[in-house]
């Protein structure tokens, strides 16, 4: 036990002596009988669902599917085919999403343990106000996922490509809308959260889930810049949108502070930033944890920012953050996505 552990044990010691809470005490709402009744119902649903699935498989296999396959182009590929890794390569996008249910992908975030597709209106000019996210986790990486039999709390939803799915009681991030979870591979889960003014959000969420492909060819992350890998830092993830993108670095692969370095069209300095010496001949501003270099080219700015702000020392101080910002090289035409490059950290 090291010093921190000894401190923690000593500080929490009074709670060790509290002993168990007697129960069920007067006023306690815990009821074993209620748990048994609800548990029985849940078990019956599972059994019925399992039986129905067996019947369905037999019917499809023996009677229906061969006929369908002869006459119809099945189009999409089942997402359940690829075994999920327990960590993603953050420089590759593993999810492909089409427009579905009125939603279209507008941004993409990669990470070691999850990849997130940001959704916007498929037709933003027509007055709809929908938005959402698709989050695909690596095997066993949903926060709170405890072992291979884990499943989200919630009502069963129609399967997604034959995989079990659940309606969450409320979106995990809070706020409005609906969230659907489905097992995209063994021990690996994906979530669709959408909100908007549509009256049939659940149907739309299900359609969005069905538009997700995880067993297609992975795509390299493409960004409108390159930069040399900063010494001692590891790539934790990337963010890409229509207006640019960024790379997130950390001092280790585990959760903790990040240094995000990127180039975005029209990015302005943060409210507390003050002018500093030009970087690479471009006007620059900074505060304690963020550096913005403006007018780098084609309306793009370079931004480097440490989160949380008080972790800037882990990354060598604001001077080094400025140096990393200064090492960013925009591609020739950053405004044209066709010219964005793979493997931007070199």
């Amino acid at each position: 036990m090291d010093e921190t552990e000894r401190d923690a044990a000593e500080l929490l010691a009074p709670l060790r002596d509290a002993g168990p809470i007697p129960g069920p005490a007067p006023g306690s709402s815990v009821s074993i009988e209620r748990a048994v009744r609800a548990g029985r119902r849940r078990k019956q649903v599972w059994t019925a669902a399992g039986s129905a699935a067996v019947v369905l498989v037999v019917v499809l296999t023996v009677g229906v599917l061969p006929g369908l396959l002869r006459g119809i182009d099945t189009g999409r590929i089942d997402t359940a085919g690829r075994p999920a890794p327990d960590a993603f390569n953050p420089m590759w996008q593993v999810v492909q999403v089409g427009s579905a249910g009125g939603y279209a992908p507008v941004g993409y975030e990669t990470g070691r343990y999850r990849q997130v597709v940001e959704l916007g209106d498929e037709k933003p000019d027509e007055g709809a106000t929908g938005s959402g996210t698709i989050t695909v986790y690596a095997q066993g990486r949903v926060p709170g996922q405890l072992g291979p039999d884990w499943e989200p709390l919630g009502d069963r939803a129609p399967d997604v490509y034959g995989r079990p799915a659940f309606w969450l009681p409320a979106p995990r991030s809070g706020g409005d809308g609906v969230e659907l979870a489905w097992r995209w591979s063994a021990d690996a889960w994906a979530f669709v959260h959408i909100s908007g003014t549509f009256p049939d959000l659940r149907d739309r969420a299900h359609r969005v889930a069905q538009s997700v492909t995880t067993d297609g060819e992975e795509q390299p992350v493409r960004l409108p810049f390159t930069l040399p890998r900063p010494d001692g830092l590891t790539v934790l993830g990337t963010r890409t949108g229509a207006d640019g993108g960024s790379v997130l670095f950390g001092t280790s692969v585990e959760e903790g502070a990040t240094l995000e370095v990127g180039a975005r069209l029209g990015a302005e300095p943060g409210p507390g930033e003050q002018p500093i010496a030009d970087i690479g001949g471009h006007p620059a501003t900074a505060d304690g944890s963020r550096v913005t270099v403006r007018e780098v080219g084609a309306g793009f700015s370079v931004v480097a920012e440490v989160e949380p702000a008080d972790a800037v020392a882990q990354f060598g101080g604001i001077e080094r953050v400025a140096a990393v910002a200064g090492s960013v090289q925009l591609v020739d035409a950053p405004g044209d996505r066709a010219g964005w490059v793979p493997d931007p950290v070199r």
């Binding site: 815990v30 748990a35 548990g39 078990k43 599972w46 039999d149």
Partner: peptide, 18 residues
Amino acid sequence: HRADDIVQIAITRLYPRW
């Protein structure tokens, strides 16, 4: 109260996995 809710949810989930 929340502790009771958590225990209730937990033992309900435990039953089919007993």
